[in-house]
């Protein structure tokens, strides 16, 4: 069973995504900020991380950098309301596999996760 970590500081987004991916049969971990996320990663390395960018304490970029440094194989999908081209490029250049802008289609997101993990 693939392990997925979902990181977002918006409780409702977290709730919806957790619900969605559990339903799809993944083992889902959630974190409300970057710091919490890094704690979880240390304990339980997930195959894929769905990562918001703007969060308190430690932001998404930092988590992404951390992952690329220590856990290269983990797939990363940024989800962010930042939708300018240069912001997307920045996210991808930091080593994320995908960049999905908010609001997004849940079906698409699920599809993308599946593709990445296969």
């Amino acid at each position: 069973m693939n392990k997925i970590l979902i990181v977002d500081d918006e409780p409702n987004i977290l709730l919806s995504l957790e619900f969605l991916f559990k339903k799809e049969g993944y083992k889902v971990f959630i974190a409300r900020d970057g710091e919490e996320a890094m704690g979880i990663i240390e304990e339980n390395i997930p195959e894929l991380v769905i990562l918001d960018i703007m969060m308190p304490k430690v932001d998404g970029y930092e988590v992404c950098q951390y992952l690329r440094q220590y856990h290269e194989k983990v797939k990363i999908i940024f989800i962010s309301a930042k939708s300018k081209q240069q912001e997307i490029e920045k996210g991808l250049s930091m080593g994320a596999d995908l960049y999905v802008t908010k609001p997004f289609s849940t079906k698409d997101l699920v599809g993308k996760v599946k593709n990445l993990l296969n």
Binding site: N12, I13, S16, A81, P103, F104, T106
Partner: peptide, 16 residues
């Protein structure tokens, strides 16, 4: 940006 955040939740739950 601030509007997209609630919109994301709304869309996600609507689809669910």
């Amino acid at each position: 940006h601030e509007m997209k955040t609630p919109l994301t939740s709304i869309r996600a739950f609507s689809e669910i």
